[in-house]
Each structure stands twice: as structure tokens, then as C-alpha cells.
Amino acid sequence: MSRWFGPATVRVIEHQAAVQRRFWRGSVFGYVLNPVLFLAAMGFGVGGLVAEGSGKVDGVTYLAFVTPGLMAAAAMQTAAGESLWPVMAGMKWLRTYHAMITTPLGPADVFAGIVTWTGLRATAGGLVFVAVGAALGGVRSPWAPLAAGVAGLTAAAFAAPLAAFAATQETDARFPVIMRVGIVPLFLFSGTFFPVAQLPAVLRPARFASPLWYGVELARAATLGRWDPTLPVKAAVLVAVILAAGVWGRRTFTRRLVQ
């Protein structure tokens, strides 16, 4: 088996970047427009209602509360979009992965490359989010740029298991189910839009099973500049998810491509 990360991984990232470059106008538009729209709607719209009611959420304005939540959730969305259908395309529809592995690259390099690329894209998206958030007044701490790194880590924690899974599938029939039953509930209930404390007590522990919750917690700590001793543990959980899914994905990619 090849290395987890090395020059071969970078070659795959170069490919992903070349494909992305064809669509850069569209994606830059999305990178900037999405945060602006979401922060405007949630921060000012919902935030205005909150200000009239309880005033603050978790001790800060609603805009400041929701900005890191939306940032981490956007990273998850990016990962879901990059790791299901595009992987099926590489394996089956366009078969570009089959071309890659006729070169010195191997299946594990392809897997590591697309997961890393997704992490990098989400990091870039996170930086834009931090900038837009700062401009709108939702980001206060000098530590906020770290939240972009959290976005990258969160994206990788989704990209790795989703790509690993996609490699086991013959069709994309289950992908919409994953989006509806997996991604959408996590998006809504991982402390993204409201504190988990608002949930009924029986449901609250479920947050520990959501990789997004760890990402939201870490991003929020960064944008609000709040340190607490559980943060390294939360970061370690995301890393553990990436490593465990890495073991799985290296295996499923190899099994699918090298027969």
C-alpha cells in the first residue's frame, strides 16, 4: 500500500484544481454570495427577531452565534457535494480514476487526493466566510481565521467517509437518501442555528455522534475567541473520524479500482 500522503496525493489535487478552474467564476460567486445571503437572512432576519425576544443567544448576538455554525455547515455541504456524485463519476461515469491508476498513482492516492482537495476548498470557503462575517459584524475575535482551518477539518471528516462509501456503490441511488436522512438533519440539529440546549433532553446526547457538532463548536470557539479545555478533544474527534474513514476509504478505493 502506498503512503497516506505524499507527492502522488498532490498530483491528484492538481487534477481536482484543474477541473475546478473551469468553473472558478461560478464557484467564487458561490463562495462569496452564499455567506452573504445566509448571514443576511439568518443574522439580520432571524437575528432581528431574537433581539426583540431574548436579546442574546449564548451570550452573544444571534449573528455572532450563527456565523460559525453556518461556516461549519457550509463545509459539510461542500464535502457532501464533492464526495458522492463526483466519486461515482470518477469510478464509473467518466472513469477518470481508472486512467489515473494506470500511472504511478494508486487508488489510495486518488482517495487521499480528493479528501485533501475537499478540505482545502472548504478552508478557502471558510476564509471567505470569516471575511464576510467580520464585515457584517458576526466575527469578533483575532482567532477567527482558525475557524477556516476548522472548516477544512470538518469537510475532510465528511469527505473521507462519504467518498469511502461512494466507492462501494454501483449506482447513485442511495446518495439522495444520505443527503436527506444524514446531511440535512445534521445541518439543522448540530448546534448550527440554535444551541443544542434548546433540544429535548433525550435528544441532546445525539450531538456527540454528529461530526458537524464538533466542527461548529470549534469554529464558534475561534470566531468568538472563547477557549475551553474540551476543544483539543473535539478537534481530536474530527481527526479520528478522518483517520478511521481513511483506513476504510483506502480499502474501498483499492477494491473498486484494482480488481
Binding site: 487534477h15 477541473v19 477518470t96
Partner: peptide
């Protein structure tokens, strides 16, 4: 990997990057 570095392979089906 060392062997593949010195091989050329043309697949039966297209494996090109269509969008490039």
C-alpha cells in the same frame, strides 16, 4: 508504480476528462 511510470495505457472506454 515503477512499472506504470514506463507504460502507456489506452482503455477500451473513454477515460478522458470531458470537462477539460
Amino acid at each position: 508504480p515503477r512499472i506504470r511510470a514506463r507504460l502507456g495505457v489506452v482503455h477500451q472506454e473513454d477515460t478522458l476528462d470531458l470537462e477539460l
